[in-house]
Computed example of a mutant assay.
Amino acid sequence: MPTRRTALLMVSAAILGGALGSFGALAQIKAVAQTPVRVGLKGYDPVAYFTLSTPTLGVAQYQYVYDGVLYRFANAHHRDLFKANPEKYAPQFGGSCAMNMAGGVRREADPTIWIISNGNLYVFAGTGGQTRFRDDTAAAGRATDNWKRLKETPSQ
């Protein structure tokens, strides 16, 4: 027959175990709720555009979720640079085509077609959009305005 103290310890352990289980379930729900919708830049490392001047595929070992998008990096150093300043390295318009965004349409971009302008990374659906964006000095402003309206819409 357990003593009163042993019984009290058993009840306390059961209550604590139940509470911890609830917290564990809550953590799982929160993790699911924060699961990114997509892999940004089709898996290309956003920091590599700035540091290596070339699109470079990232690896799953080095990844980070920012603004609901999972980004992959070529190495831990790139991931850490991004984590320290994601606004500097994240592609504009969530990685959507900048020229299409300037025209009011959210379209998935090809991350191998890109430019850095005014310290920002822009990606495009095609080389024609890249050229037009370079020539149209007002395109970035229009795209920024349209992004406010189109951010929550799916890409075409």
Score class of each variant (00 low, 15 high):
P111S: 02
L41M: 13
T153I: 00
D110F: 09
A27K: 08
I29R: 14
G104A: 03
D145P: 00
Y71L: 09
T35I: 02
N85Y: 11
R142N: 01
A74C: 04
T112A: 04
Q156L: 14
Q34F: 13
K148N: 11
T51E: 12
N75Q: 07
D136I: 00
L150Y: 01
Q61G: 04
Y89I: 05
T56G: 02
G21W: 08
R5S: 12
P46C: 04
N120S: 15
G141M: 11
G128W: 00
F50H: 08
G128S: 11
A31G: 06
G18R: 06
T51R: 10
A140S: 14
C97H: 07
G126Y: 02
S12V: 13
G141A: 14
N75F: 07
E152N: 12
A48C: 13
R132A: 15
Y122L: 03
A90D: 02
Q92G: 05
T56L: 11
I29D: 07
R132H: 08
A98P: 05
M99Y: 14
V69G: 00
P2V: 13
Q61Y: 03
Y122C: 00
A109L: 08
T3C: 09
P111D: 03
M1V: 13
I113Q: 04
P86M: 08
R72H: 14
G95R: 01
R134H: 07
D136E: 10
Q156H: 12
V37I: 12
S117E: 12
A25W: 12
A27W: 08
F133E: 05
Q61E: 15
I115M: 07
P111N: 00
V105S: 05
M1G: 14
A90T: 04
A48G: 10
A13G: 14
C97E: 06
A84S: 13
G24C: 10
P36A: 09
P2L: 15
G40Y: 02
T153V: 03
S22L: 15
T137R: 12
R38D: 09
Q130L: 13
Y62S: 14
R79L: 14
L9M: 13
D136R: 03
K88S: 06
I15V: 15
T131M: 12
F50T: 06
A139M: 10
R79M: 14
G103D: 09
D136M: 05
G40T: 05
G24T: 08
R38I: 10
